[in-house]
Amino acid sequence: MSDSANTHSGAGLAVPRRILGFERDAAGEWIVHLDCGHRRHVRHRPPLSDYPWLGDAAARAARVGAEIECGRCGRGELPDGAAVYRATDVFDEATLPAGLRRDHTIRAGSWGRVEVLAGRLRFVMAALAVDRELAEGEHAIIPPEVPHHVAPLGPVRMRVVFLRAPAPDIPPGS
């Protein structure tokens, strides 16, 4: 599920994520499962991509827990199957908590969707070069653990919806 058109200005920066496990696709290429809920193909094709540990089961196992970049997080793409589990109250320019107005993060494993119900809101995620105005009916996706904040631009009504990706189905012994 992609929400990048509603989230980012096209910066497409990568976010470091932890490897949870590995599997092969139908063509025999390696896919890593990441703690953000995304899956990513990884290929050892020097000099473009250098992952010599892919060819050795013990070396792959040793990489579980290590970081690798996730471009899909940088583009603000929700993981496939992400589902809503909670939402905040609706806030206006007077009730918007101070904590949302300053940089803060969403915990590991959770995603956010800032929804503007009326008015305009500034959404800033400096680490991913995002600084944009959201108008009524628009939203922005917030990856886990990426600092961000919002600021009302006059009268506004907004809320934050929290989502989780399904647990990965990692084949044993990958």
Rank of each mutant, 00 (worst) to 15 (best):
P47D: 11
D56W: 08
R60W: 11
V124H: 06
P147D: 10
I106C: 06
L134Q: 04
T105D: 12
I31L: 13
F123P: 01
D35I: 09
R75E: 15
V161D: 05
A165G: 02
V146W: 05
V124Q: 10
R132K: 14
H33R: 10
A94E: 11
G173N: 05
A26W: 08
D89V: 14
V146R: 03
H139N: 08
V64A: 09
D89L: 13
R75K: 12
R157C: 01
A62K: 13
L20M: 10
D35P: 06
V160A: 09
A118Y: 00
G74Q: 15
L48A: 10
D103F: 08
V64S: 11
C36M: 06
V124C: 13
P152D: 02
S9T: 09
A94I: 04
M1D: 08
E69C: 05
G137E: 00
I106H: 07
A62W: 14
L78N: 04
D169E: 15
P168S: 05
L121Q: 01
V146N: 03
V160L: 13
D3N: 09
R72G: 03
R75D: 13
D103G: 10
G173F: 09
G109D: 11
P16Y: 05
R63Y: 10
H8E: 09
G109S: 04
R63G: 02
R120Y: 00
C73R: 10
D50N: 15
A140T: 05
P47G: 11
S49D: 13
A57Y: 07
R132G: 04
L96M: 10
A5W: 14
T7D: 04
G99C: 09
L54E: 12
V42Q: 12
D103Y: 04
S110C: 15
A5I: 03
W30R: 01
S174P: 04
H33E: 00
D92E: 08
A135C: 09
R122F: 06
R72N: 07
P16T: 07
D103S: 12
R102K: 14
M125V: 14
W111N: 11
S174F: 00
D103V: 03
V150L: 12
A5Q: 15
H139M: 07
A118T: 04
P147N: 06
E77P: 04
R107A: 12
E93H: 13
G112E: 10
A11K: 11
R102W: 03
G28L: 02
L78Q: 08
V15G: 06
L100W: 01
A151I: 04
G12R: 14
R17P: 03
F123Q: 02
G112R: 00
A108R: 15
P152G: 07
D169W: 00
A118W: 00
V161L: 07
R18C: 07
R132H: 06
E138M: 03
R18N: 08
A62G: 12
I19R: 00
C73A: 07
R157T: 02
L78P: 02
A108S: 15
G109T: 01
A58G: 13
A58Y: 03
L48E: 11
V156C: 08
L96T: 14
L100H: 02
Y51S: 13
P144V: 06
G37P: 07
V42G: 07
L34R: 07
I68C: 15
L48Y: 15
